[in-house]
Amino acid sequence: MSTGAGSEHAAPLPRYEPPVTRRGFLGGALGAAGGLAALGAALSPLKDLDRSDLTLERFLQRHYKDLSPGEMEQALERIRADVAARYGVTPHLCDVKPLDGVEFVYALDLGRCIGCRRCVHACVAENNQSRDPQIEYIRVLEMPRGSVDVERGDHYYDRAKVPDRDHYYMPVQCHQCANPPCVKVCPIEATWQEPDGVIVIDYDWCIGCRYCEAACPYWARRFNFAEPELPADQVNQDMGYLSNRPRRKGVMEKCHFCLHRTRAGRLPACVEVCPVGARKFGNVLDPESEVAQILKTKHVYVLKQEVGTLPRFFYYLDEGYHGSAGGGG
């Protein structure tokens, strides 16, 4: 470190910084005023900021797992009021808990799927997804027969009539992995695996870093890049805290096996709507369930087994079935 060369001399040292003069002071004041004005101008877009989501109550809202029953009731009340204010309907909103002895599993018969995308639309309607920008949890790939390479799949096929003879159809949605990379990477535990196997997101906790979106090998997660637009007359009023209540911009969302329905004994919207019965859903811990039977008796496979995510979403081909699509793959 250099030591001050002049410190040994007796002569008075000049101060390094310029002295305060009247002119300098005025100039400084003018500069400061100009700087503040420029800062104000730079910040001016903030006057259009939607503050309805920035209340103190929301700011202090705790993580789902830290909420006491009383606090959960308050949170539900607040969300009901929010929905009422934004969409003019009072929703039937509750926090449905997982059932004991239940682990949900999905099975999809590629031989039956005709690529009609009714599941996609039913899902959007059920789960209050944004219509603009469009958010869909299910992506159906039109695959050339003889290939299992997703890079050869067409995401945007548009045919007057499906299925096409030379293709088969592979719908993909969240695989609810038993070893989920998305949960592992989340820095703030905003997404986790429930006891019944469903991976959920606390929309009030997510900071929107999109690390989970980068981690997912199935491209199952969606981010709200803009404020979701949901027409008031299309709101599904049957809502769950961890599932389909309306989201705000800046947070992640994805398929949650319609847990507000499935935990109440109903089927997911995509299963219910499927016209050919390609989609099967149920409790794998119940040996009598259809999915348990399929896993036991059919040739099932999972997508990208090599990444070690252990999906709860199985594809299979029903050899005994000769429907409109026939066997593919």
């Binding site: 920035l54 705790r62 870093c209």
Partner: peptide
């Protein structure tokens, strides 16, 4: 990092639930 967040107003959440040492981001 901060401008990349969808909800920078929730940055404080890392102090309440910090997924350490599992998440590399932490």
């Amino acid at each position: 990092v901060n401008v990349d967040l969808g909800r920078p107003d929730r940055f404080m959440h890392i102090f309440w639930r910090f997924n350490f040492p599992i998440s590399m981001l932490t």
